[in-house]
Design a protein around this nucleic acid. Structure first.
Length: 138
DNA sequence: GCCAACGTTGGC
DNA sequence: GCCAACGTTGGC
């Protein structure tokens, strides 16, 4: 079991949009970055991830689960780009903001804190647990 | 809205 | 294969 973080600009695809898809889930399409794609290739069914809103909100707002393994991205004919499908699991009661992560010494090595541009990131277990706790799910 | 950081592209 | 130019992302 591995943990991940999916970043989205809420005007493009928000947590509410994700929740609206329900159990069926939705492709995490549109990724055009090799690092992010490689992370998706590493994902297994049942892996969990944080759903992060970038830009205005800058906070972890929900928890998602990988429900379909990496497959070609249906939004392009370019065979280089692939993506997984994810479904919403549950919201994070108290969204964990980027500021909170930066203020927490234990999270100083988080990818989110150090490489804000990577849209799909791995999250270490201790980081996962701590953010769950900060978010009111610990 | 600005701009720094980063990744990708394309010319050489 | 290098590197300058460009486009995009996302924090501020």
């Amino acid at each position: 079991m591995q943990y991940w973080l999916f970043k989205s600009e809420p005007n493009t695809w928000s947590w509410d949009d994700q929740v609206a898809k329900g159990e069926a889930g939705e492709e995490w399409d549109g990724v055009r970055n090799y690092q992010a794609r490689n992370h998706m290739r590493d994902m297994a069914l049942g892996d969990l991830g944080f759903f992060y809103h970038s830009m205005k909100e800058k906070a972890v707002v929900g928890i998602v689960e990988v429900c379909k393994l990496c497959h070609p991205d249906s939004t392009t004919d370019d065979p280089r780009w692939e993506c997984v499908d994810i479904k919403a699991v549950e919201p994070v009661p108290n969204p964990v903001t980027l500021d909170m992560c930066k203020a927490e010494p234990k999270l100083k090595d988080m990818v989110l804190v150090n490489n804000s541009r990577l849209s799909v990131q791995p999250v270490r277990k201790p980081e996962w647990d701590l953010i769950l706790k900060l978010g009111g799910r610990g």
